[in-house]
Simulated scan of single mutants.
Amino acid sequence: MKLKEQMEEKITSKKNKIVIVVLYIFPTIIFCIFGIPKIMETYNESQNELNRDVTNIILPILFFVGVIYIITKFLDKFPVFIITKNGIEVRFFFKTKKYNWNEIEDIEIIGKKQFGNFFATPTEATTFNFKNKEEKIFWAESYTNSSEIRQVLERANKILLDSSKSFNSLNFETVTSLRTTEVIDIENQKIFNDNHVLSANGILFYAFLIFTLFIIFQNPSEIFEKYDKLLLINFFSLILCFAFSSSMNYFIFTEKHLIIKNSIWFWKKKIYDLENIKEIVIDMPFRSPICLRVITKNFNSNTYLASSLGNSTWRNLKKYIIERKIPLRDEILI
């Protein structure tokens, strides 16, 4: 178990900066490639009195400013949260709001909330329920240190629900990783897996794999002559093979462990001590196969797609998890 100590008595959420930079850079590049040349062309024509219409100057600028504004409003859905002993501070791009702990009724640490009207499935979130019925939502998957934030908020929620405790005792020390037993018990294994070859993703995987091999070996003498075209075709085929195979996980339970393996990547293995698991979630992300989300007691969360498992296997898995008295959340009511 690794501990991460906070130098100050506060913890600040961290956004994924790469995503933010890409969101702003992409429209800027488009504007530089298409917008600026059009503006310069129109300006030169107006100087030569060939064209007095400045529409082609104004429209690209308005479009660029509009796109940047929309991106900024979208990113404002994910403000910076600062947790202190006095309360929470929520920082948006152009404003900051502060709330004292006595304004908050309770905190739902784990669960799902609907994100706007654009996504077909709810998103993992932590919800602050205020006494005035207001809600503030911390979209966990949009922050790189959401597990640390949730650890501190879990302690804060316990203080909220126990009037005898004071927020002066709020601890900001966090656990970054949990120890996993190196020796795995191999007896009494319960395996939840189906024939991946007969699944939709399995059929597509082998179809693209065979197609790739066929393209390469149908005429070996032309490999070097048409290597550029073959390289492009095989590149996309391999990407599709990777996408289909990465979702073919299956699950093994032992007396003390949960083991996640992959039918194609047979060497790949992830092991969890059952005592370290806070909750298991059966979920179906947007336009994805059914998956198993494992949330550990330090709120690290990982999702494992399992496209090769049939509904009956999922139902048996759900029944088994309940029988083992492992906390389970079924988001799709399988």
Rank of each mutant, 00 (worst) to 15 (best):
Phe214Gly: 11
Leu160Gly: 03
Phe217Asn: 09
Ile203Leu: 09
Ser163Val: 13
Ile159Asn: 00
Thr212Arg: 09
Glu148Gly: 02
Thr176Met: 10
Lys165Trp: 04
Ser199Cys: 02
Val175Trp: 01
Ile184Trp: 04
Glu173Met: 13
Phe167Ser: 09
Asn168Tyr: 07
His196Gln: 07
Lys158Tyr: 01
Glu154Phe: 11
Val197Ser: 11
Leu209Trp: 10
Glu182Gln: 14
Ser177Cys: 03
Asp162Gln: 07
Ile191Gly: 12
Leu161Cys: 09
Ile203Arg: 11
Leu198Pro: 00
Ser221Leu: 12
Ile149Phe: 02
Glu141Tyr: 06
Ser142Lys: 11
Asn168Ile: 02
Tyr143Lys: 08
Glu141Asp: 13
Gly202Asp: 00
Val183Ala: 08
Gly202Trp: 02
Ser163Glu: 15
Ser163Ala: 13
Glu141Arg: 07
Leu161Ile: 04
Val183Gln: 13
Ser169Cys: 03
Leu209Lys: 08
Leu198Ile: 08
Asp185Arg: 10
Phe208Gly: 00
Val197Ile: 15
Glu222Thr: 15
Leu213Thr: 11
Phe211Glu: 10
Ala156Pro: 01
Ile149Val: 10
Leu209Glu: 09
Ile215Leu: 15
Pro220Glu: 06
Glu148His: 11
Thr174Leu: 02
Tyr143His: 08
Val152Arg: 08
His196Asn: 09
Leu170Glu: 01
Val197His: 14
Ile210Gly: 07
Ala156Val: 05
Arg179Met: 12
Leu178Ser: 06
Ala140Ser: 15
Tyr206Gln: 07
Asp194Leu: 00
Ser147Phe: 08
Asn201Cys: 05
Ala140Tyr: 00
Asp194Glu: 03
Leu213Met: 13
Tyr206Pro: 00
Ile215Asp: 03
